[in-house]
């Protein structure tokens, strides 16, 4: 299969006066189209940096980041915005819904800016919130809010779904349900999903597991037979 997303010797160096700190010190990995990839690493290992760079929120100091053949490291800030707008779906740890908009409106908000959106209501039904679409975020539970967040990301019909600790703020069962939703989405729709987590226990559900340590990829495991989330316990 193609290398749909590929990072080649990606470095991110912050200059703090004289001292140079490398948050990412030559990261290399790739993810194929339709894969469910998990990036695992301890706090400070550089996984957030990877996420920022992949999500177009930050640029790498050097190296190449190829998404569907395009090197986004060379992108101008404006191009990066378009990239985020059209190619990326983002699922946040804390959902980041607009408190003043209902579930449906939160999804629609994202849709109004992209080219080929899906139907907001359908997506919400898909994530299992068909009956809560007119509720405000404050009226929804954490899991429900995260479902709205996922629906918002999916409805944009992105090339890549980036998830930042999507279960971090959720309880065990809800978290599992969310992970299942993500895995199902990947399988059913052929969506490329990259999930970033510090919880290595969920690694077996992924097609590809990338371990990051001290700004470098320590190992990559290709999982030929990922297991369903339901069977994982942690």
């Amino acid at each position: 299969m193609d290398k749909y997303v590929e990072l080649r010797d990606v470095k991110k160096i912050y200059k703090m006066g004289e001292v140079e700190i490398a948050a990412a010190n030559g990261i290399d990995f790739y993810v194929n189209k339709g894969e469910f990839a998990v990036v695992v690493g301890a706090s400070g290992a550089g996984k957030t940096t990877v996420l920022n760079i992949l999500g177009g929120m930050d640029t790498a100091t050097s190296g190449k980041v190829l998404v569907d053949g395009e090197n986004i490291v060379k992108y101008s800030p404006k191009n990066l915005i378009s990239y985020r707008r059209d190619d990326i779906g983002f699922v946040f740890q804390f959902y980041n819904l607009i408190p003043n908009l209902t579930a449906l409106e939160n999804v629609e908000l994202a849709l109004q800016i992209c080219k080929e959106p899906l139907d907001a209501k359908e997506v919400l039904e898909e994530v299992g919130l068909g009956d809560r679409i007119n509720n405000f975020p404050a009226q929804l539970s954490g899991g429900e809010q995260q479902r709205v967040s996922i629906a918002r990301a999916l409805a944009k019909n992105p090339k890549l779904l980036l998830c930042d600790e999507p279960t971090g703020a959720l309880d065990y069962n809800t978290g599992k349900a969310i992970l299942k939703l993500l895995q199902d989405t990947c399988r059913k729709q052929g969506m490329t999903v990259i999930l970033i987590t510090h919880n290595s226990a969920i690694a077996p559900m992924a097609d590809r597991v990338i371990h990051i340590k001290s700004g470098k990829v320590s190992k990559i495991i290709e999982n030929e037979n990922p297991i369903p989330v339901e069977t994982i316990e942690w």
Partner: peptide, 16 residues
């Protein structure tokens, strides 16, 4: 701040 940052992440241009 969060709301606006989110909008940016979602791909809203500065002007928007």
């Amino acid at each position: 701040r969060r709301e606006l940052a989110t909008l940016k992440v979602l791909g809203f241009y500065d002007g928007e």
